[in-house]
């Protein structure tokens, strides 16, 4: 989130004083931390039932639950106020909404109710580049919305690829994750659909003139690679797999590289254009 927030800030047209830019990224990090603390405060009883999360400070008893709630509220509130005073109130408003979205809409309301929870949760992770962009420009245009959409549609195939090969105990904790509720086949189908939908969205910043060819060609090649790796994953079933989920692991690893490379290309495109190269 810090990386994509920084990339949004660096790729935006215009300039920002380094101290203000640093403050904007710091506020994104503090806000994300605050939202994560509030998430763990609310889900402490669920975390206690799952092996992966049972050793977190709250379920393990290293921190009092009320202290965590107060710390989360303090981090969230501080990040919003500092963002507003130092950077701008529109960036602060989006940061505030992203914290509310993750803590309340996702964690409290929809995560325990729908197997589409990963899709909804992806929205929370998609705000940082938009906040970084708005910190520089001061307004919401098509480009930050597209950056939001890229991470939004990237999250489901990224997470579900992981969910296919990692043994989780979400079912025990009563969380309706897609592979648990709908099973292996529909999850694999959803993965290929999302990678296909992601392709035109990832290239869209180039088509609308928001970036140059460096980003456009990179996005096209990277997205075709993502889609290509999703094909074998979508064509098989876990009970028939004999290669220790090699294709699923490869897709997950590529998804991490994909997002990093895509946003790095976005920044490289902007920086080279500002130096008059490939303008």
């Amino acid at each position: 989130m810090i990386f994509t927030g920084l990339c949004g800030l660096l790729a935006a047209p215009g300039t920002i004083h380094p101290v203000i830019g640093f403050t904007a990224v710091l506020c994104i990090a503090l806000g994300a931390g605050g939202a994560a603390v509030l998430n763990q405060w609310w889900e402490a009883d669920i975390d206690a039932q799952m092996k992966r999360t049972a050793q977190r400070p709250l379920p393990a008893g290293r921190m009092h639950r009320d202290d965590a709630r107060d710390f989360g509220m303090f981090l969230s509130g501080t990040s919003i106020v500092v963002m507003g005073l130092a950077v701008g109130w529109l960036a602060a408003a989006i940061l505030a909404f992203s914290i509310f979205y993750y803590s309340v809409i996702y964690t409290i309301w929809l995560k325990p109710r729908t197997p589409q929870n990963i899709v909804i949760g992806g929205g929370a992770g998609a705000f940082p580049p938009m906040i970084g962009w708005v910190a520089v420009t001061g307004d919401v245009t098509l480009m930050p919305v597209l950056l939001f959409a890229i991470i939004f549609f990237w999250t489901p195939p990224h997470f579900w690829a992981l969910a296919l090969f990692v043994e989780t105990d979400y079912a025990k904790a009563g969380i309706p994750m897609m592979p648990v509720v709908h099973g292996d086949g529909p999850t694999r189908t959803q993965i290929i659909i999302y990678t296909l939908v992601l392709l035109p969205i990832a290239v869209a910043p180039w088509f609308v003139g928001g970036t140059g060819a460096i980003y456009g060609v990179s996005a096209l090649v990277l997205s075709l690679g993502f889609f290509g790796l999703a094909i074998p994953v979508s064509r098989r079933r876990s009970d028939q797999v004999t290669d220790k989920m090699k294709a699923e692991k490869r897709l997950f690893a590529y998804s991490v590289f994909y997002l990093f490379a895509l946003f790095a290309a976005l920044v490289a495109d902007r920086l080279l254009a500002s130096f008059g190269v490939f303008a």
């Binding site: 004083h17 101290v19 203000i20 403050t23 710091l26 005073l85 130092a86």
Partner: peptide, 13 residues
């Protein structure tokens, strides 16, 4: 230190 620096940047803007 950060708030000190922000104040100076804002005053200079």
């Amino acid at each position: 230190v950060l708030f000190y620096a922000i104040t100076f940047v804002k005053m200079g803007a």
